[in-house]
Amino acid sequence: MADVKLTIGGRPYDVHCADGEEAQLIQLASVVDEKVRTMPGVTEVRQLLFAALMLADETQEARGKVEKAAPQSDSLRAAVALAESREAAARDELKATVEREKAALAELEAARQKAATAAPSANPSNNRALLQIADRIEALAGRVEQLP
């Protein structure tokens, strides 16, 4: 325990507090001292009574503000939760889009490879037929050119 000497309204008070809480206690005493100093010329008991009443009034007012702000706080929390869920949905959608794009790319690559491997096997017969047609059309051209 720590011994602390407080001065409120010009009068000294010796109090005890837990170790480490001295500064906090002195700061609180200065708040009481400030209230007491607003009412000079009355007895010590009345000064402390009025200081206690003013502090109780301030506490009640602060509590009212907190309760008034609570619904707003709830709304904010709800808005944050909604934003978070929307963000998660957007992230999921983006992820799905990326996956779809990857799948489409893989499909395209597979089709390209299939076309690349299929082309050599499909082309030879077509190429041979084309060459034969070229031979026949060239022969036809020769015959047409020699028509009387």
Partner: peptide, 19 residues
């Protein structure tokens, strides 16, 4: 020997010229 695409193009060129 199998024909490749270039030979196919050559065949088409020959056909066009003959026509």
């Amino acid at each position: 020997m199998e024909l490749d695409l270039d030979e196919s193009s050559l065949a088409i060129g020959r056909i066009e010229r003959a026509l």
